Amino acid sequence: MAESSDVTRLLISLKKGEDGVYDKLYPLIYDELRNLAYSHMNRQSADHTLSRTELVHETYLKMIDQTQIDFSDRSHFLAIASRCMRQILIDYARKKQAEKRGGKQKDLTYIDGIFNGQNSKAQELIDIDDALKRLAELNERLSKVVEMRFLGEMTIEETADALDISESTVKRDWMKARGWLYKELKERFEVS
């Protein structure tokens, strides 16, 4: 695991606009990004064609393309990386759903989809993303806690550090957010 102070120092250099910082930062946090990617990919269907290495590389490219990102420390950087991974996977899932509705894939009946589970993981991911967007409209911090705890598999301590709130606040927010999401997604899946 990368030394937090080394990563923080590089992030400060990045804020100052120094050249070549991403090239120094990437090797320090690569393993952590791979672990994040592994946790995200574990929630995907078995036929997912994006590898965790590709997800790490796509995330890296997405992050270096964002000149306005303001990282405060290692935990915050990883939280933003986790969010980028989620966005990449959502885009991938939406593309797969679009293909299912008329793209290059063969036609599947509803029953086929149930039995072989194709596209159900992609739809679940889209539903979770939609629910998180609605939650962010109601309470942005609750949404961020879910992203960091569930999607980024960050600890309560890491989440508290990244959001600059107490651990007890993270625990309360986590409980509230999970309850809200359970109710929201339960209703959504009962309707489907």
Rank of each mutant, 00 (worst) to 15 (best):
T67P: 13
E99M: 06
D31W: 11
F189I: 06
L50F: 03
I88R: 02
L181M: 09
L108S: 08
I156Y: 04
R178C: 02
A162R: 02
N42W: 04
M148Q: 02
T155P: 00
R74F: 01
L125W: 10
R9E: 09
S39D: 15
L14W: 11
S72D: 12
H48E: 14
K121H: 15
D6I: 07
E184S: 10
H40G: 11
S82F: 00
S192T: 10
K104Y: 05
V145N: 06
G20K: 10
L50C: 04
Q123W: 01
R9K: 06
H57P: 05
L125P: 11
Y30G: 00
D91E: 01
S39M: 15
N35R: 15
G20D: 05
G17D: 04
L28D: 00
T8R: 14
I64A: 06
Q68C: 08
S192W: 10
K144V: 07
L25K: 03
H40M: 14
K183Q: 07
L55W: 06
S82K: 00
W180E: 03
R178L: 08
D164Y: 05
I128F: 12
H40A: 15
E18D: 14
D173E: 09
Y182V: 01
Y38G: 03
K104T: 11
M148G: 02
L33E: 05
R188H: 11
V56H: 09
A122W: 01
H76D: 09
L28A: 00
I64S: 03
Q123C: 01
D161C: 08
A122P: 09
A93M: 07
A46G: 13
R94G: 08
A122F: 05
L185Y: 05
E167R: 09
T155N: 02
T49C: 13
S4N: 12
E124F: 11
A37G: 06
K96R: 13
Y92H: 14
I111G: 13
D6G: 07
R94E: 10
